[in-house]
Structures are given as structure tokens and as C-alpha cells.
Amino acid sequence: MNLSRKLSVDDLLEGCKRSERRTQELLYKVLASRMLGVCMRYAKDRFEAEDMLQMGFVKVFQKVTEFRGEGSFEGWIRRIMVNTAIETYRKNQRMMNVVDIEEVYDAPQVTFDMKGLEVRDLMNLIHQLSPGYKVVFNLYAIEGYSHKEIAEQLGITEGASKSQLSRARGILKEKLVRIERQTSVPNSNAQLGNDVPLTMAAMPIKVN
């Protein structure tokens, strides 16, 4: 499926460069759901994610003639979506939660049964992070950016990027521990926080 998608996306490139409306629509239909998945990880809700998606595709059609073929066309579009998400984050978040490197949270060593985690559960966990932690964790852990690239994109230092990533990991692991505690005590769902999805409550988690 990935191969067929890649070929079709690359085949649509020339038509998009000629601003053919039909080709633009085809490209949107092929990639919209995947790109909305990217935007959803950065946005605070679905509406903001769809706004990002719309702005991102407009940029794609505006700048498609600048695409030089370095890397895949889909990868180029994905970077535009991420950059659009970063712009939105920087507009919304003038005051970021910057944590000094000395304050890096030392997360406890935990073990999880990772097979039980679902996509929806992970998305819920990420959305519980503050915007600063969320964008750094997304860029580093999922998009594969380096701390230097993150620092340039967000206008922060590399140390701040590292500290926010560490803090984000710690928060996520802490929430998973809470889920484990919940699952270890039967019929105690009522004591859990409202932000813990039910599907995660059933996961077996062991804390060292």
C-alpha cells in the first residue's frame, strides 16, 4: 500500500506544478487523512488540526514548484504540515513552559506491557501534555528531529529542548504507572483521574 501511495503521490507532482485543480484534489484525497493524523498530534483539538491541514495544503499548492525532488514528495508535504503546526503553536503559545536543565524530571524506571497500548490511548496521553512538552516530544520522538533542529524551529536552546523532552517522557511514564496502579486494584476506576482512558485501565503494567 505504501508503494502504491508513493507512486501515485509522485505521479501527481507534475500536475500540481501546473496548478491542475483535478490533480490537486487527487493529492489531497490521497494524503489528507495521513496529514491530519500529523496535525492531530500537535493541535489541541480536531478543529485546530483541520485548520492546520487546510493551511498546510494551501502552502503545498503555493510552493510545489519549489520542490526540487530532494527526498520524497510526501516527505516534503509532511514537513510543511509539521512547520505549519509549529507556526500555530508559536502563535498560540507565546509563553512556553521552559524547564531548566537542572530541573529535569528523573522518571522512575517502569515496565509496561507495550502490546496493550492502542493508538487512541497514546494520542490521549500526548494531549495531556502541556503544549511545549507536546511539541518537543512529537518533533523528537515521532518526527525524528534532533535537538538542534528543534531548538532552531522553536527558537529555544538545545538544553531547553532536552529538558522538555525529558520532562515529557517523565510525565507520560508517570501516567502509565498510574494506569498500572489502577489496573492492579480491581473496581477502583472511580478513583482514577478523568484523563485516563478506559482501554488503558485494563493494561497490565508493573512498576519496579
Binding site: A32, L36, F112, M114, I142
Partner: peptide, 24 residues
């Protein structure tokens, strides 16, 4: 059950979310 390093922890999220799709 097994111990999770930072890299494995990040990889878990990447595997599950990198190709995640939502219909607009």
C-alpha cells in the same frame, strides 16, 4: 512485561502514531 528505555519508549509512540490517519 519488560523494562522500557527512553529509545524504546519513543519508538513505541513512533510506531503507533507516525502513520496514524484521521479522516478530515
Amino acid at each position: 512485561m519488560h523494562s522500557v528505555s527512553d529509545d524504546d519508549f519513543d519508538q513505541l509512540f513512533q510506531d503507533k502514531l507516525y502513520l496514524h490517519e484521521v479522516e478530515p
